[in-house]
């Protein structure tokens, strides 16, 4: 078996990161006009995958499902608003919800948490209801912080005995599948502490130890340091991973809820995300440029200083996570 080692060519230098990270959009986002048709997400995917025949994935020499290859992100407009929404602004076109459960596509916040999200939105200075002109928090992605799930982005999956490795141009996750216990909840991480296991054809990753300091999207949807996530990776067909993310946190949600979307194998089209960041979406480029499958330096910290200084001057506060009052 040959490990595909195709990456994405990203000619993003430090200077470009500054340009891309203006105050509102996250890095590398496209601009959408008001006539953009509604982008498909969870609802369309759930309906489509119900029509697919059963698929038995190839296996690695160790006998586990072979998920290796380079995979696209969730598609859509880059995690701008997880819930179903109409046109918001040039960075946020209309789109179906990422949320597959509850079926209404809404995150089941407690009343306190819903008020908290409204405060996040009103403090963005983006024209959300309740805005007073006072700035609260900027989207933590503006500072280059990384997260798992829809904001985790495209990347390569490499499997080794005892671990599954996920690599983007900027950051890596190593998911042990050797049965070791989690690091204690005393230790918190931006991307949590992942532990994987194989359940039939599905890679199940339990993520604990999240620091609760990131957002789930750029419009204030949030989780906390009590949140546990469970990711499920399953091949729906030879070129598609069916990705499901369960989010659980009794302190801010009334019930566990799920996101569900497909990740397409690089170069096979389908539900590419619309950022146009990765040249492997363009097969002409991939076939004509010997470097097209390489991943080149994709910095963020090194070019974001100006953005950070501007956000600080504008009066945005530091988001260190929020919890309901006791």
């Amino acid at each position: 078996m040959r490990n595909p080692s195709f990456g994405a060519i990203t000619l993003v230098a430090a200077a470009l990161a500054v340009l891309a990270l203006s105050l509102r959009p996250a890095a590398g986002q496209a601009r959408f006009d008001v006539k953009t048709p509604k982008l498909p997400m969870s609802k369309t995917w759930v309906a489509y995958k119900a029509t697919l025949p059963p698929y038995s994935p190839p296996r690695t020499p160790n006998g586990v499902p072979d998920l290796q290859g380079v995979w696209g992100g969730p598609g859509g407009a880059g995690g701008d608003d997880l819930e179903d929404h109409g046109y918001v602004d040039v960075t946020t076109p209309p789109q179906e919800s990422y949320v597959s459960d509850p079926p209404d596509g809404r995150i089941p916040y407690t009343p306190w948490a819903l008020t908290q999200r409204a405060a996040h939105r009103a403090g963005l200075s983006r024209g959300w209801p309740g805005e007073t002109g006072e700035r609260l928090y900027a989207d933590p992605a503006s500072y280059c912080f990384t997260m798992i799930g829809p904001r985790g982005g495209a990347g390569e999956i490499i499997q080794q005995p005892g671990s599954v490795i996920m690599v983007t141009g900027r950051v890596h996750r190593v998911i042990p599948t050797d049965g070791r216990p989690h690091v204690s909840e005393r230790a918190k991480f931006w991307r949590g502490n992942p532990r994987g296991r194989w359940d039939g054809d599905t890679l199940v990753v339990e993520v604990t130890g999240l620091n609760g300091k990131h957002w789930l999207d750029s419009v204030g949807n949030f989780y906390s340091e009590n949140t546990r996530m469970v990711e499920r990776f399953r091949m729906a067909d030879a070129n598609t991973i069916d990705y499901e993310l369960t989010v659980e946190d009794p302190t801010i949600y009334t019930r566990p809820w799920k996101m569900n979307y497909p990740m397409r194998r690089a170069g096979t089209g389908g539900t590419d995300n619309t950022t146009g960041k990765y040249a492997w979406r363009n097969t002409v480029t991939v076939n004509s440029d010997p470097y097209a499958r390489e991943v080149w330096e994709n910095t963020c910290n090194e070019g974001v200083g100006h953005t950070i200084a501007e956000l600080h001057k504008l009066g945005f506060k530091w988001f260190s996570g929020v919890m309901p009052p006791r």
């Binding site: 500072y143 190593v174 042990p176 931006w190 910290n301």
Partner: peptide
């Protein structure tokens, strides 16, 4: 139990 954890310096 050696594993790569996180050092997100800028944060």
């Amino acid at each position: 139990n050696a594993e790569l954890l996180e050092y997100e310096c800028l944060s």
